[in-house]
Amino acid sequence: MRTSLALRELVRENKVTADDLIMPYFVVETDDESFKKEISSMPGQYQLSLKQLERKVGEAVADGLKACILFGIPAEKDEVGSGAYDDAGIVQKAIRLLKDRWPELVVIADTCLCEYTSHGHCGLVKNDYVQNDPTLNLLAKAAVAQARAGADMVAPSDMMDGRVAAIREALDEEGFINTPIMSYAVKYASAFYGPFREAAESAPRFGDRKTYQMDPPNGREAMREAVADLEEGADILMVKPGLPYLDIVRQVRDNFDTPVAVYQVSGEYSMIKAAAQNGWIDEMGVIMESLVAFKRAGADLILTYFTEDVLKALK
Protein backbone atom coordinates (compact mmCIF):
# COMPACT_ATOMS: atom_id res chain seq x y z
CA MET A 1 0.00 0.00 0.00
CA ARG A 2 3.03 2.29 -0.20
CA THR A 3 4.22 1.58 -3.70
CA SER A 4 2.80 4.76 -5.27
CA LEU A 5 1.75 8.23 -4.19
CA ALA A 6 -1.82 7.51 -5.25
CA LEU A 7 -1.98 4.43 -3.00
CA ARG A 8 -0.38 6.25 -0.08
CA GLU A 9 -2.88 9.08 -0.38
CA LEU A 10 -5.76 6.61 -0.68
CA VAL A 11 -5.09 5.13 2.76
CA ARG A 12 -3.68 8.23 4.45
CA GLU A 13 -5.11 8.61 7.96
CA ASN A 14 -4.61 12.33 8.46
CA LYS A 15 -4.64 15.19 5.96
CA VAL A 16 -4.20 18.93 6.26
CA THR A 17 -6.72 21.08 4.38
CA ALA A 18 -7.50 24.78 4.14
CA ASP A 19 -10.34 24.23 6.61
CA ASP A 20 -7.81 23.36 9.33
CA LEU A 21 -5.70 26.53 9.14
CA ILE A 22 -5.84 29.93 10.83
CA MET A 23 -3.37 32.64 9.77
CA PRO A 24 -2.09 35.16 12.35
CA TYR A 25 -1.57 38.78 11.26
CA PHE A 26 0.08 41.72 13.02
CA VAL A 27 -1.61 45.01 12.23
CA VAL A 28 -0.04 48.36 13.16
CA GLU A 29 -1.76 51.64 13.95
CA THR A 30 -0.10 54.04 11.51
CA ASP A 31 -1.01 56.73 8.99
CA ASP A 32 1.54 55.30 6.54
CA GLU A 33 -0.56 53.10 4.27
CA SER A 34 2.58 51.63 2.68
CA PHE A 35 3.91 50.38 6.05
CA LYS A 36 5.05 46.76 5.74
CA LYS A 37 7.94 45.83 8.02
CA GLU A 38 9.44 42.36 7.95
CA ILE A 39 9.92 40.83 11.39
CA SER A 40 13.64 40.12 11.61
CA SER A 41 13.26 36.96 13.70
CA MET A 42 10.37 35.67 11.57
CA PRO A 43 11.42 35.84 7.91
CA GLY A 44 8.38 36.17 5.66
CA GLN A 45 6.15 37.64 8.38
CA TYR A 46 5.33 41.33 8.66
CA GLN A 47 3.92 44.13 10.71
CA LEU A 48 1.26 45.61 8.43
CA SER A 49 -0.71 48.82 8.07
CA LEU A 50 -4.43 48.42 7.51
CA LYS A 51 -3.93 48.86 3.77
CA GLN A 52 -1.15 46.28 3.60
CA LEU A 53 -3.20 43.91 5.76
CA GLU A 54 -6.03 44.21 3.25
CA ARG A 55 -3.66 43.32 0.41
CA LYS A 56 -2.11 40.36 2.21
CA VAL A 57 -5.45 38.95 3.27
CA GLY A 58 -6.84 39.45 -0.24
CA GLU A 59 -4.02 37.35 -1.70
CA ALA A 60 -4.54 34.66 0.93
CA VAL A 61 -8.31 34.57 0.41
CA ALA A 62 -7.67 34.02 -3.30
CA ASP A 63 -5.55 31.01 -2.32
CA GLY A 64 -8.29 29.62 -0.08
CA LEU A 65 -7.85 31.29 3.33
CA LYS A 66 -10.84 30.53 5.56
CA ALA A 67 -9.83 32.12 8.89
CA CYS A 68 -7.37 34.53 10.43
CA ILE A 69 -6.53 35.89 13.89
CA LEU A 70 -5.51 39.51 14.49
CA PHE A 71 -2.91 40.97 16.84
CA GLY A 72 -2.78 44.74 17.22
CA ILE A 73 0.13 47.11 17.72
CA PRO A 74 -1.21 50.50 18.86
CA ALA A 75 0.47 53.84 18.25
CA GLU A 76 0.48 54.51 21.99
CA LYS A 77 0.43 52.23 25.03
CA ASP A 78 -0.57 52.88 28.63
CA GLU A 79 -0.62 51.06 31.94
CA VAL A 80 -4.20 49.83 31.50
CA GLY A 81 -4.01 48.75 27.85
CA SER A 82 -6.86 51.03 26.79
CA GLY A 83 -6.28 50.40 23.08
CA ALA A 84 -7.49 46.85 23.56
CA TYR A 85 -11.04 47.94 24.38
CA ASP A 86 -11.26 51.21 22.45
CA ASP A 87 -13.90 50.97 19.71
CA ALA A 88 -11.44 52.91 17.53
CA GLY A 89 -8.56 50.60 18.45
CA ILE A 90 -6.41 49.13 15.71
CA VAL A 91 -7.76 45.57 15.91
CA GLN A 92 -11.35 46.84 15.91
CA LYS A 93 -10.56 48.86 12.76
CA ALA A 94 -8.97 45.81 11.15
CA ILE A 95 -11.97 43.62 11.98
CA ARG A 96 -14.38 46.07 10.39
CA LEU A 97 -12.18 46.33 7.30
CA LEU A 98 -11.87 42.58 6.78
CA LYS A 99 -15.51 41.76 7.48
CA ASP A 100 -16.62 44.47 5.09
CA ARG A 101 -14.42 43.11 2.30
CA TRP A 102 -14.80 39.38 2.97
CA PRO A 103 -17.96 38.66 5.00
CA GLU A 104 -17.42 34.90 4.81
CA LEU A 105 -13.88 35.07 6.19
CA VAL A 106 -13.76 33.98 9.82
CA VAL A 107 -12.05 36.85 11.65
CA ILE A 108 -10.83 36.01 15.14
CA ALA A 109 -9.57 38.61 17.60
CA ASP A 110 -6.82 37.85 20.07
CA THR A 111 -8.17 39.14 23.38
CA CYS A 112 -5.35 40.25 25.64
CA LEU A 113 -3.74 43.39 27.05
CA CYS A 114 -0.02 42.67 26.58
CA GLU A 115 0.21 44.32 23.15
CA TYR A 116 -1.42 47.47 24.54
CA THR A 117 0.16 47.91 27.98
CA SER A 118 3.25 50.02 28.54
CA HIS A 119 4.66 47.36 30.88
CA GLY A 120 4.04 44.48 28.45
CA HIS A 121 2.10 42.25 30.85
CA CYS A 122 -1.27 40.65 30.14
CA GLY A 123 -3.03 42.29 33.08
CA LEU A 124 -3.08 45.26 35.39
CA VAL A 125 0.04 45.62 37.51
CA LYS A 126 0.36 46.77 41.11
CA ASN A 127 3.63 46.65 43.05
CA ASP A 128 5.23 44.78 40.15
CA TYR A 129 2.66 41.98 40.41
CA VAL A 130 -0.01 41.18 37.85
CA GLN A 131 -3.47 41.57 39.36
CA ASN A 132 -5.79 38.76 38.24
CA ASP A 133 -9.28 39.85 39.28
CA PRO A 134 -9.05 43.58 38.39
CA THR A 135 -7.93 42.54 34.90
CA LEU A 136 -11.07 40.52 34.14
CA ASN A 137 -13.30 43.53 33.54
CA LEU A 138 -10.86 44.99 31.00
CA LEU A 139 -10.60 41.70 29.14
CA ALA A 140 -14.39 41.52 29.03
CA LYS A 141 -14.54 45.08 27.68
CA ALA A 142 -12.00 44.17 24.99
CA ALA A 143 -14.02 41.12 23.91
CA VAL A 144 -17.20 43.20 23.66
CA ALA A 145 -15.43 45.87 21.60
CA GLN A 146 -14.12 43.18 19.25
CA ALA A 147 -17.53 41.56 18.89
CA ARG A 148 -19.12 44.98 18.31
CA ALA A 149 -16.62 45.56 15.50
CA GLY A 150 -17.76 42.31 13.87
CA ALA A 151 -15.34 39.64 15.12
CA ASP A 152 -16.64 36.14 14.48
CA MET A 153 -14.80 34.81 17.52
CA VAL A 154 -12.76 36.10 20.45
CA ALA A 155 -9.66 34.34 21.73
CA PRO A 156 -8.54 35.24 25.27
CA SER A 157 -4.81 34.53 25.54
CA ASP A 158 -3.98 36.13 28.89
CA MET A 159 -4.36 33.10 31.20
CA MET A 160 -6.05 35.09 33.97
CA ASP A 161 -8.21 32.82 36.12
CA GLY A 162 -11.91 33.39 35.48
CA ARG A 163 -11.56 35.40 32.30
CA VAL A 164 -13.68 33.07 30.15
CA ALA A 165 -16.65 33.44 32.52
CA ALA A 166 -16.21 37.23 32.63
CA ILE A 167 -16.05 37.45 28.84
CA ARG A 168 -19.02 35.12 28.32
CA GLU A 169 -21.17 37.11 30.72
CA ALA A 170 -20.20 40.43 29.14
CA LEU A 171 -20.82 39.19 25.60
CA ASP A 172 -24.22 37.80 26.53
CA GLU A 173 -25.24 41.00 28.31
CA GLU A 174 -24.40 43.00 25.17
CA GLY A 175 -26.39 40.64 22.94
CA PHE A 176 -23.45 38.72 21.45
CA ILE A 177 -24.82 35.38 22.57
CA ASN A 178 -23.59 33.62 19.43
CA THR A 179 -19.99 34.88 19.56
CA PRO A 180 -17.84 31.85 20.43
CA ILE A 181 -14.80 31.90 22.70
CA MET A 182 -11.63 30.11 21.62
CA SER A 183 -9.75 29.97 24.89
CA TYR A 184 -5.99 29.72 25.17
CA ALA A 185 -6.86 27.20 27.86
CA VAL A 186 -3.49 25.47 28.08
CA LYS A 187 -0.85 28.12 27.49
CA TYR A 188 2.61 27.46 28.81
CA ALA A 189 5.23 30.01 29.93
CA SER A 190 7.34 28.92 27.00
CA ALA A 191 10.75 29.94 25.67
CA PHE A 192 9.31 29.48 22.17
CA TYR A 193 7.54 32.87 22.22
CA GLY A 194 10.61 35.06 21.69
CA PRO A 195 10.05 36.06 18.05
CA PHE A 196 6.37 36.85 18.71
CA ARG A 197 7.34 39.40 21.31
CA GLU A 198 9.36 41.23 18.66
CA ALA A 199 6.47 40.95 16.20
CA ALA A 200 3.82 42.21 18.63
CA GLU A 201 6.18 44.52 20.54
CA SER A 202 4.87 42.92 23.73
CA ALA A 203 7.93 41.83 25.72
CA PRO A 204 7.45 42.42 29.47
CA ARG A 205 9.32 45.47 30.75
CA PHE A 206 10.08 43.62 33.98
CA GLY A 207 9.86 40.06 35.26
CA ASP A 208 8.19 37.36 33.19
CA ARG A 209 4.81 35.68 32.76
CA LYS A 210 5.51 32.57 34.79
CA THR A 211 3.12 33.59 37.57
CA TYR A 212 0.09 33.33 35.28
CA GLN A 213 1.09 31.07 32.38
CA MET A 214 1.60 27.34 32.92
CA ASP A 215 4.82 25.72 34.07
CA PRO A 216 6.18 23.62 31.13
CA PRO A 217 6.83 20.44 33.17
CA ASN A 218 3.15 20.15 34.17
CA GLY A 219 0.72 17.92 32.31
CA ARG A 220 -2.06 17.12 34.78
CA GLU A 221 -2.51 20.82 35.45
CA ALA A 222 -3.45 21.24 31.79
CA MET A 223 -6.57 19.15 32.36
CA ARG A 224 -7.58 21.32 35.32
CA GLU A 225 -7.17 24.45 33.20
CA ALA A 226 -9.20 22.95 30.36
CA VAL A 227 -12.01 21.85 32.69
CA ALA A 228 -12.18 25.29 34.28
CA ASP A 229 -12.46 27.06 30.92
CA LEU A 230 -15.11 24.66 29.64
CA GLU A 231 -17.18 25.15 32.78
CA GLU A 232 -16.90 28.92 32.29
CA GLY A 233 -18.18 28.74 28.71
CA ALA A 234 -15.27 28.16 26.34
CA ASP A 235 -16.27 26.76 22.94
CA ILE A 236 -12.80 25.78 21.69
CA LEU A 237 -9.77 24.76 23.76
CA MET A 238 -6.34 25.77 22.56
CA VAL A 239 -2.94 24.30 23.44
CA LYS A 240 0.08 26.58 23.01
CA PRO A 241 2.88 25.98 21.93
CA GLY A 242 2.42 23.08 19.55
CA LEU A 243 5.15 20.55 18.76
CA PRO A 244 6.76 20.45 22.24
CA TYR A 245 3.30 19.78 23.70
CA LEU A 246 1.83 17.12 21.40
CA ASP A 247 1.27 14.91 24.43
CA ILE A 248 -0.93 17.65 25.91
CA VAL A 249 -2.88 18.02 22.66
CA ARG A 250 -3.59 14.28 22.78
CA GLN A 251 -4.67 14.45 26.43
CA VAL A 252 -7.05 17.31 25.72
CA ARG A 253 -8.44 15.44 22.70
CA ASP A 254 -8.96 12.24 24.66
CA ASN A 255 -10.64 13.96 27.61
CA PHE A 256 -12.94 16.48 25.93
CA ASP A 257 -15.35 16.45 23.00
CA THR A 258 -15.01 20.17 22.28
CA PRO A 259 -13.00 21.32 19.24
CA VAL A 260 -9.27 21.49 19.96
CA ALA A 261 -6.92 24.11 18.50
CA VAL A 262 -3.14 24.20 18.60
CA TYR A 263 -0.82 27.15 18.00
CA GLN A 264 2.40 26.51 16.10
CA VAL A 265 4.13 29.46 17.71
CA SER A 266 6.75 31.92 16.50
CA GLY A 267 9.73 30.00 17.82
CA GLU A 268 8.62 26.86 15.99
CA TYR A 269 8.18 28.89 12.80
CA SER A 270 11.56 30.61 13.12
CA MET A 271 13.49 27.38 13.73
CA ILE A 272 12.04 25.80 10.61
CA LYS A 273 12.71 28.93 8.55
CA ALA A 274 16.31 29.19 9.82
CA ALA A 275 17.06 25.55 9.06
CA ALA A 276 15.51 25.88 5.61
CA GLN A 277 17.48 29.03 4.81
CA ASN A 278 20.66 27.16 5.70
CA GLY A 279 19.70 24.33 3.36
CA TRP A 280 19.52 21.81 6.19
CA ILE A 281 15.92 20.68 5.63
CA ASP A 282 13.21 20.46 2.99
CA GLU A 283 11.11 23.39 4.19
CA MET A 284 7.69 22.39 2.86
CA GLY A 285 8.29 18.76 3.77
CA VAL A 286 9.00 19.69 7.38
CA ILE A 287 6.08 22.14 7.48
CA MET A 288 3.59 19.52 6.30
CA GLU A 289 5.04 16.85 8.59
CA SER A 290 4.67 19.17 11.60
CA LEU A 291 1.10 20.08 10.69
CA VAL A 292 0.15 16.44 10.20
CA ALA A 293 1.60 15.76 13.66
CA PHE A 294 -0.93 18.19 15.11
CA LYS A 295 -3.76 16.45 13.27
CA ARG A 296 -2.53 13.02 14.37
CA ALA A 297 -2.38 14.21 17.98
CA GLY A 298 -6.03 15.24 17.73
CA ALA A 299 -6.12 18.94 16.82
CA ASP A 300 -9.05 20.21 14.78
CA LEU A 301 -7.64 23.69 14.13
CA ILE A 302 -4.07 24.86 13.60
CA LEU A 303 -2.88 28.43 14.05
CA THR A 304 0.32 28.69 12.04
CA TYR A 305 2.37 31.39 10.34
CA PHE A 306 2.89 28.90 7.51
CA THR A 307 -0.79 29.11 6.53
CA GLU A 308 -0.24 31.24 3.40
CA ASP A 309 2.58 28.95 2.18
CA VAL A 310 0.53 25.83 2.82
CA LEU A 311 -2.50 27.24 1.02
CA LYS A 312 -0.36 27.84 -2.05
CA ALA A 313 1.03 24.31 -1.83
CA LEU A 314 -2.43 22.77 -1.45
CA LYS A 315 -3.70 24.85 -4.34
Rank of each mutant, 00 (worst) to 15 (best):
K99M: 12
L21Q: 04
D208V: 04
P216N: 09
C122P: 03
E232P: 08
V239M: 14
L97G: 14
L113N: 10
L21D: 07
N132V: 00
E169F: 05
D32C: 04
A143R: 05
Q277T: 11
M160V: 01
L171I: 03
A84D: 02
P204T: 01
V262I: 15
T304I: 03
I181L: 03
P204C: 02
L97T: 12
L48A: 12
R253H: 11
A147N: 06
G175M: 01
K315V: 02
V11I: 11
F71E: 09
A145C: 00
D87P: 08
V16I: 00
M42C: 06
L98R: 13
D86K: 04
R96K: 14
D161F: 00
L314I: 13
G150H: 05
A200P: 07
G64D: 10
R8H: 13
V260L: 10
S202W: 09
V292D: 15
T258D: 00
T179Y: 00
F192W: 15
D215E: 12
Y212C: 05
M42T: 00
R96F: 06
A297N: 06
G150A: 06
T258C: 13
T258K: 14
E59V: 12
D254C: 08
G242A: 15
A140N: 00
L50N: 03
V28A: 03
L65V: 09
L139D: 07
L65F: 10
L7S: 14
I248V: 14
K66I: 14
Y46A: 02
R220Y: 15
E231M: 12
L246T: 14
P74S: 10
N218Q: 13
A88V: 00
A297Q: 04
V106G: 01
A142N: 05
V106C: 08
I73A: 10
K141E: 00
A299L: 07
V249C: 03
D172I: 02
A189V: 02
L7E: 13
R250C: 06
E198H: 07
Q251N: 13
H119Y: 01
I95G: 07
D300V: 12
A189N: 00
V164S: 02
V286I: 15
D31Q: 15
P244I: 06
A75S: 13
V106S: 11
K126D: 12
A165T: 00
E201I: 11
C68Y: 15
G194S: 04
A155C: 04
N127W: 12
D86R: 04
G81T: 01
M284A: 07
V249N: 09
Y129M: 14
A276P: 13
K210M: 13
G242E: 14
R209Y: 01
D158N: 08
P156A: 01
D31G: 11
S118T: 12
L5C: 09
A275F: 15
L171H: 08
F196M: 03
D215P: 05
L138G: 05
